[in-house]
Write a protein that binds this DNA or RNA. Structure first.
Lengths: 266, 266
DNA sequence: CGATAGCTTGAGCCCTATCAACAGCTGTGG
DNA sequence: CCACAGCTGTTGATAGGGCTCAAGCTATCG
């Protein structure tokens, strides 16, 4: 996975939240940052810590999780390249969740004070950051509805749809095919089910011809079928209809808009 | 439920997120607002609408809910006096949830542009608003962990603990007694269980001597027991330890701090 | 070539949903 | 004043989705 200039992913992602001015992009490019690598399962920010820097995903995938009853774990978010994983710590005293690498990942750390002073100088940048935060909140609500009111099959289908749309939005999925280093236990912890049952649900999705799913990656064979099973609608992700993020040249934003209406993406 | 000057509840609530300057308080007091009454079950903001004003609870309780599969409903938040129910719409195009009055309620509507210009002029006010938003996000994460990983008894216990602490923080509960106009169906929809099962869980909480619970209200008889059952810890609510909101004079903030550590509050 | 991590499968059981019926209370209208 | 409807709470019976325990399988890796 190539990274390019380290801040480009962040700019792309924020731009999907709100179009930026050239000076905003310059502010981001000027941010001091530390790049670090993490292996699968490594903890990047510990729950209850009070970090003084923000964690930006450059490549790979992170998860936010909370421990419940010392044995159980609930994943509350997945962070994809360009996402800021611990924005909350910028204003709240301690982080109420831990951040872990799912598979190996590359992240950039940006000191709070540098980010804060960039935001003080660039109002549209501030707005983009807050929008990302509000979109994350909308995603929590969507997960709440899904976990609270849908059965296991729908939960997993919904999660796969969300990840697919988000990965396409940052150019890491094409034609609804992508690879993602999560395990079935990660999926179980995100969907509030047991790992054994997650396995059975994945098999059922395969048997129904909705997805092709192996260790190499996931490829969605029947988008509208999967959308129907998961009750998915991409609106809560608030992806700008005009996000021009085509990674190599194809007009992939067409697919994304379709995904938003839950219509077949090809 | 007396309201006092309409903006006082909002000031108190924001002050719990971040201490305000006198000029901030003045900015709030100068906000133009429209006061409105709603009956039990009335919809205040419809899902998918794009409101141009924010909804502040003055008295009573609101819920945010999402519809799932046209028959199911998931409540994602309860809003208590002083809370802003639809902050998200200030920056995102449409609201991904509906807002409904639980019992009868009085709300104030504040136009977005007025709120925005007040925030432009008062940075600490802005910070307080964003903190409230981040606390709401932290609450979503806590609910996700609870609904995803705890059984029905824990979910209801956890919800009751949260509401108790939040009501005490705004002076609407004393000695862990409060009245709240929700129905068992509301509780079911918030906890992701059926209304029949919610009833059985409430009865179990009563039988265990944890709560006294009738149509008049709820009184928590065994705080530490309830906290243990619900796996509750108030830290995610980020209540300032110094919040001096004692409604009549008793030093209720001691109890609140205790509640945060999940130790007996009396 | 073991070892470890992840995936798969089976069996039994428990929590919770669903369906159904009834009681209590409140407001409405004749 | 009583009959009635509607909402909320309560209880019982039944069924099903998902958990737990347990074991076997597969693949990657040092």
């Amino acid at each position: 996975m190539e990274i390019g200039r380290p801040y480009s992913r962040l700019i792309h992602r924020l731009e999907a939240c709100r179009p930026l001015l050239p000076e905003d992009r310059q502010h981001i490019a000027d941010l001091p940052l530390t790049v670090a690598n993490f292996g699968a399962g490594q903890e990047i920010v510990r729950q209850d810590d009070a970090p003084t820097r923000c964690t930006v995903v450059l490549s790979g995938i992170l998860s936010a999780h909370k421990r419940v009853d010392r044995a159980q774990r609930q994943i509350t978010s997945f962070f994809l390249p360009g996402d800021i994983a611990d924005l909350s710590a910028l204003y709240l005293p301690a982080l109420d969740y831990g951040v872990t690498a799912v598979g190996s990942a590359v992240v950039a750390f940006v000191p709070h004070n540098a980010l804060q002073s960039a935001m003080d100088r660039a109002p549209t940048l501030t707005e983009a950051v807050w929008r990302q935060s509000l979109i994350q909140a909308a995603t929590f609500r969507e997960w709440l509805a899904t976990i609270g009111r849908r059965d296991a099959l729908s939960r997993v289908a919904h999660l796969v749809c969300e990840i697919a749309v988000r990965l396409q939005a940052v150019g890491l999925a094409r034609d609804l095919r992508f690879s993602i280093p999560w395990t079935q236990t990660d999926i179980a912890d995100a969907c509030g089910i047991s790992n054994v049952h997650a396995n059975r649900v994945v098999q059922k999705l395969r048997r129904r011809g909705l997805v092709e799913w192996n260790t190499q990656g996931i490829s969605i064979l029947d988008w509208s079928g999967l959308v129907a099973v998961g009750g998915f609608s991409a609106e809560y992700l608030a992806l700008a209809p005009s996000l021009s993020l085509a990674p190599v040249g194809k007009p992939i934003e067409m697919r994304l808009r379709d995904a938003g209406q839950a219509t077949p993406p090809a």
